[in-house]
Design a binder for these strands. Structure first.
Lengths: 216, 216
DNA sequence: TACAATATCGTGGAAAACCCTTAAAACAAG
DNA sequence: CTTGTTTTAAGGGTTTTCCACGATATTGTA
């Protein structure tokens, strides 16, 4: 049982593999595949673009990908991208991440990692594979921390971020309530909504995300 | 009420300030000042060196400090250093941190921050002030993550680290118990010991430390 | 203005976490 | 072989979290 349905669009340059992957995606309970195409260009004139949650993008070279993503994201900032690509170079990884992809893993990733990445992305979090992280680490830290966060923050309301911060600061529900002058029950509601939106099931999960988001 | 007593040695190059700071330290309930000196060199031939928990080190220039610390730590790896120093340069910060100081804050830090740093260090965690972190971020990431961790891990037993990992992975007590084939009560014991050792009061706190330690 | 998202507050109940105390076996180090 | 730490465990509590159902007011925006 999943708490969410991700309306997903698949981009894969090889028709056969595109089809195969599409079928495979359709079998996943929380994925609703709304379309597929061989390149990002086909995507732009789609009428139902704004109903899409996640774009799963297979790219064999990351040359112009970053700017295309940037262009699309400018029109539809809520769109999330999960990029599957070859092991990146330190130079390319930077601009790709800055373009605002929410997830970035290499082709060689295990199914398990794919799952993790997809769930993270479709729930508004970010996920970078080990190889990507390594390259990012070689590049400057400054460009790496701030960029991917906004997606997540936009996804949460102001109040929710506030609650998230306090939860991750070891405040109890009661304490948060009195701090914000609202009812315990309201705090619980927010907390529950956070669970749902972030796809975790308790405060420990929230805390890890809060750390990753940098709200603590 | 504190859960710990930190046997502390103070190093300050200026006699007057050394005396003043020493007195100030003595007033703190969980500090037991076991000695003071004007330089690290005085420290090496101390007979009771291995009964010391924390060395609070005021250093106006960080030139040779790193190697001195390294030398001392080689003989007494359990010794923790809290370094008070001027705002560091990107070059110096790296080697200082690599020398294994557990805490590093600037002279200008507020009392509040001093307290945080001291508690962290004496409990085997690490604490770097904002300024230090910034400089570290400018330097490479790789050199920054791994070094300070071992102190913390030494401080925890193997089993405790294991429990910590599972807690931070959103496992419930019952789940952990069945995973490790031990009683719920045992898991609770470990969890409580972790609270005590790490100076936090719930699993959210543990989680944050686990993330910092890199066990998740 | 109507619709969606957000923020608010509730009941009731089950599960998990947390607190205090005690203590025995296993083990390493001195 | 004693001493300290780790790992194990239990009884008997309180508090907090989490879940499953609501419900109403506010706000922003198409």
């Amino acid at each position: 049982m999943e708490h969410f349905i991700a309306h997903t669009f698949l981009v894969h340059p090889h028709p056969l593999e595109c089809e195969a992957v599409a079928d495979w995606l359709r079998k996943i309970s929380y994925v609703e595949l709304v379309g597929k195409g061989s390149s990002l260009d086909h995507l732009i004139q789609l009428p139902y673009l704004k109903d899409i949650d996640v774009i799963v993008l297979f790219a064999h070279q990351t040359e112009n990908v970053a700017e295309k993503i940037l262009k699309i994201r400018k029109l539809h900032p809520r769109l999330k991208f999960l990029l599957l690509a070859p092991s990146p170079s330190s130079e390319s990884v930077r601009e790709v991440v800055r373009s605002g992809v929410s997830g970035y893993i290499v082709f060689e990733s295990e199914l398990h990692e794919w799952e993790l990445a997809f769930r993270a992305v479709s729930q508004g979090r970010v996920y970078y594979g080990q190889e990507v992280m390594l390259r990012l680490a070689e590049s400057s830290v400054e460009t790496f921390i701030p960029e991917p966060i906004p997606t997540t923050k936009d996804f949460l309301s102001k109040r929710e971020v506030e609650i998230l911060r306090l939860v991750a600061n070891e405040y109890t529900t009661t304490r948060i309530a009195s701090e914000l002058c609202i009812s315990d029950k309201t705090v619980e509601s927010h907390r529950r909504n956070l669970f749902q939106k972030l796809g975790v099931k308790n405060s420990v999960g929230l805390t890890k995300i809060a750390v990753r988001m940098g709200v603590v």
